[in-house]
Write a protein that binds this DNA or RNA. Structure first.
Lengths: 190, 190
DNA sequence: ATCGGACCTCTACATTTGCAGAGTATTTTA
DNA sequence: TAAAATACTCTGCAAATGTAGAGGTCCGAT
């Protein structure tokens, strides 16, 4: 859709995200990125001469990916809400939250890695906020849809809950939560 | 007689925790640890010849620190519950949760850093679980105290909520939640 | 054809890293 | 007190890293 032939730039940024999830920030080196992207040595250096720029671009790339996923979640929610009522829509979101932590485990881990890095590096602060905003967006969307009261704190609380549970699951600790559990928590917050 | 001079060992491990919070996992090098600890070059290498051992020991050290904090929280909660009733005790915990993210920001960030690393490194998996268990302990304690029939999933959910909110606050994103908000969420989960 | 420039690949190099091991001080033991 | 064990400190080194820059390949305009 975006580009007929996957751009080299994009290939590199996807490799960075993958490396962030599998080897962490310390595993992201120009050479490792080149290899993970299946490109000759020097490719990532050519597109992103400085490592800071590479990380910053990867974070922005990840934010757009998340935003696209979020849009799909919003569409799915809106459809359920219209056709099957609010309860079904809430359950749908609860399922998606769990699926998010499973299917997009590497996306989530990469985001956590960048978010933590942004907490201590000023040059990543901006993109870190972009990432958090992207993850917060669908929550804000359906929270406002359910109850018109616009409570920022409630949204942040819910976003924190989602991330906390996703983190526990992504690190393989604790039992897998059920959709009922999450749906109950979401309803109780409203 | 486990260690003749526990002072130096502990100084080094505290420096590692500090570095994890301020410079992340990639900032933890033998030389940086020596400098942060105010010890001559080679000190950390002497006590922990391999970097994996250094990180593992630091994680274990952090776990014991957290456990000590947890014990204090439990004592404080039990006192409030006995003297001022359950509502006051819940509010107390809510306040502590917020104070946790503020005062122990570096402890929390170090734990996140290690937890993320444990998600991809097998040699840190064990201590990663120790860390999570240490953070989960006080939550389990007071959840069970309030209502005896709480299951593991509810405890994990609550622990995830706490970590998620702490993360958002530690990274300086989102407004600071109020004690009322957290207390309400805690009560609704019960 | 050929010139010029964008796109790419490779080599080079100073710096930093984990780690080993030699050397030195300090404490314990006999 | 002398010897031995322990607790450190310093130097050295191969490997990895960020980055610079030299070269190569392609392609459209002249």
């Amino acid at each position: 859709m975006s580009t007929p032939k996957p751009d080299r730039r994009e290939t590199i940024l996807n490799a960075v995200v993958e490396l962030l999830a599998t080897r962490g920030l310390e595993g992201v080196t120009h050479r490792a990125v080149d290899e993970a992207a299946g490109l000759p040595q020097g490719s990532s250096t050519y597109y992103f001469p400085k490592k800071a720029g590479l990380l910053s671009a990867a974070a922005q790339h990840l934010a757009t990916v998340l935003e696209k996923d979020c849009d799909e979640l919003q569409v799915g929610f809106a459809e359920r809400a219209a056709k099957q009522g609010m309860d079904a829509a809430v359950s749908y979101v609860a399922e998606e939250v769990i699926a998010y932590a499973e299917d997009s485990r590497h996306l989530f881990l990469a985001r956590m890695e960048l978010t933590l890095a942004a907490a201590r590096r000023d040059d990543l602060k901006g993109v870190g906020e972009q990432l958090t905003a992207a993850a917060r967006r669908p929550i804000e969307f359906f929270l406002r849809l359910i109850s018109e009261g616009k409570d920022d704190v409630a949204i942040d609380t819910c976003a924190g809950l989602v991330d906390g549970i996703a983190l526990m699951h992504a690190t393989g600790q604790g039992p897998k939560p059920t959709t009922d559990q999450i749906a109950a928590v979401v309803r109780s917050i409203l």
